[in-house]
Amino acid sequence: MQDQPTAASPDPLKLVLYIAGQTPKSVAAIENLERICANMPGRYVVEVIDLKKTPQLAREHNIVAIPTLVRQLPIPIRKIIGDLSDREKVLVHLKVGE
């Protein structure tokens, strides 16, 4: 788990990335997310959950595809599946930078 809190705006962005072990897709997703977040404005929190270690969370959080990025805050929840290889698209779907 890694947290990258940045204190700035009052509306924090909470992201959770679900992966399953160190598969190429999971590793690629983590790297892509790190790259996206590095250039992202505003306050945000990122949590990475490895479902290999905590499979019960897959049920609780209803995760089917791996990797899945969930924007928990602000609501409504948004989900992005895939290795996040298209930075622009990810930003559009996370509705950041508007």
């Binding site: 598969t23 690629a28 997703a29 499979p55 089917v64 595809a65 791996i66 948004r78 895939g82």
Partner: peptide, 17 residues
């Protein structure tokens, strides 16, 4: 409706569950 697909993925979550 609440899903966006960006890049490669698999259904490992389903397997794990």
């Amino acid at each position: 409706a609440e899903l966006a697909e960006i890049g490669d993925y698999d259904l490992e979550g389903l397997f794990l569950r």
